[in-house]
Design a protein around this nucleic acid. Sequence first.
DNA 1: GTATCAAATATGTTCATACATATAAATAAA
DNA 2: TTTATTTATATGTATGAACATATTTGATAC
Lengths: 247, 247
Amino acid sequence: MKNKFKIDHSSSIPLHTQAEELLRSLIKKEEYQNGKFLPNEVELSEQLNISRNTLRQAINKLVYEGLLVRKKRLGTWVSANKVISGANNWLSFSQEMKVLGIDVHNFELHLGWTRPSKEAAAFFNIKNDKRILKLERLRGKKDLPFVYFISEFNPKILLTGSENFNRPLYEILENDFNIIVKTSQEEISADVAGIFYAEKLEINPIDPILIRKRFVYDLNGVPVEYNIGYYRADSFTYSILCDRKLS
Amino acid sequence: MKNKFKIDHSSSIPLHTQAEELLRSLIKKEEYQNGKFLPNEVELSEQLNISRNTLRQAINKLVYEGLLVRKKRLGTWVSANKVISGANNWLSFSQEMKVLGIDVHNFELHLGWTRPSKEAAAFFNIKNDKRILKLERLRGKKDLPFVYFISEFNPKILLTGSENFNRPLYEILENDFNIIVKTSQEEISADVAGIFYAEKLEINPIDPILIRKRFVYDLNGVPVEYNIGYYRADSFTYSILCDRKLS
DNA sequence: GTATCAAATATGTTCATACATATAAATAAA
DNA sequence: TTTATTTATATGTATGAACATATTTGATAC
């Protein structure tokens, strides 16, 4: 019983790295997601049979990542701010969720060849009578779908539609098509959900949603994907770090 | 001569914080910008008369921030990754509007000394019984107020409250206080307007709004301003360019 | 000349220890 | 009831020591 937290002292993996992994798995647990304090440093380090310093090294990293919050006398807990980070180093949805310690669930998947949206047609610079591959997905975490994605792909990419879309998208593009996505122009706005998305996201049609459009380019500046995500406003915040270019 | 690196052991500022500041100033030097190795940890810690662990704490922070790069046996140097070419060059509201060709109108202005919001107090690391300068403005274009701003300033900045706030904010800080704003951490979310903002923005309380929080730092990483803007969702879209860091 | 090996050197990892300090909660005083 | 005061408790700060390990550089052997 109790927590079977264990660290392998004979492993070649540094102890603080093991501790970090362990914390990441803890973070996913419902109780901690709900704000429960993590075990305190002194106890946990004893339990893991590592020094407090070593444990602290692991915690620090997660604090810097914004995953954990610490406060003197209070303790350490999982950050409530579910934040998608637009910083440099932007990520695929799966990666973003992994960083946040969330297990991705896929609720719906629709795939087909249709006419491009106006915006996608303009982005790929094609006529809108051409057919392109469109991928729609309802995703989120256990029991809570919180985002509806629509992706349209540049017809130059010879996707067949029979790819396994449970693999990360950008991995498919990289491995199977040798396309390395590099740049993303993003636009964030807000709106009311409307009937369609309200039903998908299990909210009211008049509830607010956050909308993120992504214009994705590869290494050579060729448009690859037009992606639009409709997020439940109560589940997401978009975060960016901006630096001013000083002469 | 030589390096006059010094750390004040009698100061109430933690040694690692002082070391961090010192490193930040080192980083600005041309030689280190050009890739020269920083003094090694053992020597530098001796020179500063602090333990290597404490120095390491400071370096770690800068490494996590992406400012420094470390490599075993080689040493530590300033990251060549000049930006962060994400959304560099961020702008003040007036500038943003100028770029969009919109004439700024100020509809309301409230100025006063009050207790800081929880978020501002945490950002500036001050007690919330202290009084700080708070600036609220309803702004927009002719006949259409579309954003309500609330700004709170670090009390370290000796604003009197009698500055002319029709000048661009960051110009005031730069000219009158020699504070150069440099970095902004931004968080964007959506919500319903609520009664207060609905009335200001002339919309319905259940209409969606876009909320942008800005955590603004100066050149030295000192918190300067906490700003929150409530935008009419039908008038505002947030746009950024993200680049993926490829190894 | 080239391949191999050893030494030097920077950061990386880990520990044990001690005291400081913020603050929630309990307690005592008004 | 309200207001001080104390106390317990978690993280915060700081030290010093030791050994591990990656990588460059130079010495040695072929």
